[in-house]
């Protein structure tokens, strides 16, 4: 279940991040960020499995992809922001 969300400020960063994760063997999806986790309007997010979250953050960091935020989607559909 893809319930871990990493938001990014541009589609380019999202694409760069997606490629970096895919190269590292992590499966993810690039999508327009749900409104609840993109209060600044129009953002992109990488969604992936919760268990891959920490590794993904490290890979993105090493690839120069700055995340705007990280979120977990709860079963009720709400999101909780994770500390950096």
């Amino acid at each position: 279940m893809y319930d871990f969300y990493i938001t990014l400020r541009s589609v380019t960063m999202g694409q760069k991040g997606r490629d970096a994760l895919n190269r590292a063997g992590l499966s993810c999806r690039l999508l327009r960020a749900p409104r609840e986790i993109a209060p600044e309007g129009c953002a992109y997010a990488l969604s992936l499995r919760r268990r891959d979250g920490d590794r993904a953050r490290t890979i993105l960091d090493q690839s120069g992809v700055r995340a705007a935020g990280c979120f977990l989607r709860r079963q009720d559909g709400s999101y909780v922001r994770l500390e950096p």
Binding site: R9, S10, V11, T12, M13, P39, E40, G41, C42, Y44
Partner: peptide, 17 residues
């Protein structure tokens, strides 16, 4: 418009946007 951070009325800081 850049399709990003639309509420912000300043141009994004990040390249290439």
């Amino acid at each position: 418009g850049t399709g990003s951070s639309s509420l912000d009325q300043q141009m994004p800081q990040d390249l290439p946007d």
